[in-house]
Computed example of a mutant assay.
Amino acid sequence: MTLTFTLDPVIDPVLHAGILDLWTDVSNAGGAVGFVPPVGRDDVRPQLIKQLAQVADGGSRLLVGRDAEGGVAATVFLTFNTHHLMTHWLWAYTVMVHPRHQGKGYGRDLMAAAADAVRTSFDGVEAIRLCCRGGLGLEHFYASCGYKEVGRIPDAIRVAPGDDRDDIIMLLPLR
């Protein structure tokens, strides 16, 4: 079974709720997506609203992966650079695969679908950049998807008092 990916889906209440549930579940499973567990939907909702506002304003685009039942199983927000000297690359934010689907290769499928979407639907974009939280091995996953570590800021992410993690910058050239 594979996921079905859609770039720029219509954001209706069902999709909004699906992404909110996904983000909450990923966060509570220990996923490095901007929160530290435990979180509830009310904790995540303001950040989701901000990201969906960027989509509505045209500053970001959304890629959604749905499972065989049609549920939201994976997402990534692809955000344009606003600096005129950096419009040739964009950011990948909030890369998520639902915990019940992890270990099935869906993360690799999501990253490949994101790269394909950028290659075919984003004129002039030559690379995807993302940051990931150190201490979880995420940089190894992204490296296996073709990304290269291009920077690291030690102890930039404080997940708890006394628990600081590196902010790891990864880049995928698309040429």
Rank of each mutant, 00 (worst) to 15 (best):
R108V: 03
R108S: 11
R108T: 10
D109G: 10
D109S: 11
L110S: 09
L110E: 10
L110R: 07
M111D: 04
M111H: 03
M111C: 05
M111K: 00
A113M: 05
A114L: 12
A114I: 13
A115W: 11
A115L: 10
A115K: 10
A115V: 10
D116Q: 14
V118A: 09
V118R: 08
V118T: 08
R119G: 04
T120G: 06
T120R: 14
T120Q: 14
T120A: 15
S121F: 14
F122K: 01
F122H: 05
F122M: 06
F122G: 04
D123C: 06
G124A: 07
G124F: 05
V125L: 07
V125M: 09
V125Y: 09
E126V: 12
A127V: 07
A127L: 08
I128Y: 06
I128N: 03
I128V: 12
R129D: 12
R129P: 04
R129F: 12
R129H: 14
L130M: 15
C131G: 15
C131S: 15
C131H: 15
C132H: 04
C132K: 04
C132N: 07
R133I: 13
G134F: 00
G134H: 00
G134I: 05
G134L: 04
L136M: 11
G137N: 05
L138Y: 10
L138C: 00
L138P: 00
L138D: 07
E139C: 00
E139T: 02
F141V: 06
Y142I: 05
Y142G: 05
A143N: 10
A143C: 11
S144D: 03
S144F: 03
S144Y: 00
S144A: 11
C145R: 08
C145Q: 09
C145K: 10
C145N: 07
G146N: 09
G146K: 09
Y147W: 15
Y147S: 02
Y147K: 05
K148D: 15
E149S: 02
V150T: 13
V150N: 02
G151V: 02
G151D: 01
G151W: 01
R152E: 03
R152V: 00
R152C: 01
R152D: 01
I153Q: 13
P154F: 07
P154G: 11
P154V: 08
P154L: 11
A156P: 03
A156Y: 06
I157F: 06
I157V: 10
R158L: 14
R158V: 13
V159T: 14
A160K: 12
A160E: 12
P161G: 08
P161Y: 08
G162D: 04
G162C: 02
G162Y: 01
G162V: 06
D163V: 14
D164F: 15
R165N: 08
R165P: 04
D166T: 03
D166C: 00
I168Q: 00
I168L: 01
I168N: 05
I168E: 00
I168K: 03
I169S: 14
M170T: 04
M170Q: 03
M170L: 12
M170I: 04
L171R: 11
L171C: 04
L171F: 00
